[in-house]
Amino acid sequence: MSLLSLFPTSGGEPADEAADEQVSAWLGELDPGRDSATYWMRFHRDTVAAASFELARRRRDTQRTVSDVVSSWSGAVVSAALVAAAAAGIFLAQPGSDGGPGAVGVEEVLLFGLAEPAAVESEGRDDGSDSAVRFTAEVNW
């Protein structure tokens, strides 16, 4: 096949759009497919083959649904929830370790008052000072 037949000048094109036949013929030497009819086919095949992994990854990413995403996270989320629940259970089951008074309910305070008000009162009187604690003890009904 001649280069001229490969580089036709189409009549409908503006003159300056037409390929320069002589220059085309020279540059045709640079075409690696000129002497090997299969060069471009091999180039194409190799290039597409090299991309197969990336294309497959993109297909996988596209095909992932919302449920796939949720299920992919569910394992980790369930494990973390179980661990957190176990830790909370252990914490609640343990008695107060600092030896301090336990929690006092609001109803208990209203019905029975705070425990040991006398101790507070006596401390105030021992000091002989006119402290707010003493005042509180005196006005205690």
Partner: peptide, 21 residues
């Protein structure tokens, strides 16, 4: 091609392989 369509990517390669070279 963004969605992993091999045929589309193959066409792009065929279209631009010579100009890329």
């Amino acid at each position: 091609s963004c969605a992993g369509d091999e045929e589309a990517y193959s066409t792009l390669v065929g279209r631009y392989m010579r100009s890329a070279y």
